[in-house]
Design a protein around this nucleic acid. Sequence first.
DNA 1: TATTATTGACACATTTTTATGATATTCTAA
DNA 2: TTAGAATATCATAAAAATGTGTCAATAATA
Lengths: 221, 221
Amino acid sequence: MFKILVVEDDYIMNETICEYLKECGHKVESAFTGKEALEKYSHKIDLILLDIMLPEINGLEVLKIIRKECDIPIIMLTALNDENMQISSFDQLADDYITKPFSIAILGRRINAIMRRRGIAVPINVWRYDKLTVDFSGFSAEISGKQIDIAPKEILLLQYLVENKGRVLTRNQILDHVWGQEEAINDRTVDSYIARLRKKLVLDDIITIKGIGYKFEEKIE
Amino acid sequence: MFKILVVEDDYIMNETICEYLKECGHKVESAFTGKEALEKYSHKIDLILLDIMLPEINGLEVLKIIRKECDIPIIMLTALNDENMQISSFDQLADDYITKPFSIAILGRRINAIMRRRGIAVPINVWRYDKLTVDFSGFSAEISGKQIDIAPKEILLLQYLVENKGRVLTRNQILDHVWGQEEAINDRTVDSYIARLRKKLVLDDIITIKGIGYKFEEKIE
DNA sequence: TATTATTGACACATTTTTATGATATTCTAA
DNA sequence: TTAGAATATCATAAAAATGTGTCAATAATA
């Protein structure tokens, strides 16, 4: 269902959470330190469970760093003692926080609630994918560090697709979102832009669903 | 998904139910007394969960009053002790009743069941069934984790069947819904598509009702 | 102003889907 | 049990949808 990064230094705890999430049908990735979290974090991840007390870099720092890049859903895990920490300060950055010890079932519900609240479409500013890096807010893209030419409309289209990964978007949805409702644009124009994206980005991850529309689907693991 | 009015005087109970329903994607409205229920009830509500023991006007009265007006789906919540009450009397008026204490998950199933019985389709995005997983929003399907080829129309047809599981759909209903009213398509085309679904998905759960149409019926639990 | 980039549209090639009809099979009612 | 009707199945021609390269118009930029 979702791909979840579990950041928790206690081995048993980490294991337990991961097991449960797998049972729920999610894919999981473990990290035991803040540093590891930042390494393993990527836009393939849909949601992060982030402990506050971590070795090297603490959870609060990790939260701030990731938030600069994008708005991925993050749930903080706090021990009761941590409550002294300025919870209010990261409150605005995190989507939710759960106080340990917590019931494992609660976790599942909170995750679902948050993803739903987010409407599943996850806003992204900087997107890394294989050799590709796209800065949606800066309207720039590079492949293996080399800047490439890409037009604004192309970037907007890519962003819309990526933010709705896995979901098929009809040409009308795309036109409404990227071009705006008032414009009367030809359906087929979308096709042209899709072709340009595929060519420029060497992407075969934009899937065509004939008669319906297009979707972005992650192919690399 | 649906708009549900929760009528229950116990605050904690009311809250719990509402939270759960929200997580399921429904919109909820709370009422704590019979009077409040009648005030908040409107034709925008899709379904009512109605406790029997209520202050001011009891649930049974509320039920009767609402039934005079319309035939909205209503599920009664009864405590074990209430069973002495003439359940049979409101049996015909209510769609279902659930005895407290009940598992919160059961509630969701009952709701879906009733809405389905009433002919209201229950939207589904991702559908897991035995080894089969179908992503209706992504127009993709897999068996035991392996992606399989499936055409858009096939997915649409499957979705229609699954969202109306247990209910027989005529070929005309299917044509209207999947192909669209304006198209003049041969009846028999539906048969072909059904055959393909059965073959591709190794499904023997699509039942033929001779002379009428088809239905999807769950065989596994 | 000259030059370049972006944009939307179109035409033609290509691919996939899809509807259909012929035939085999199953069901049902008498 | 059997005739008659309804459905299952499959191959395939035809239709529909998309991929792709180019172009003229417009916008942006130097």
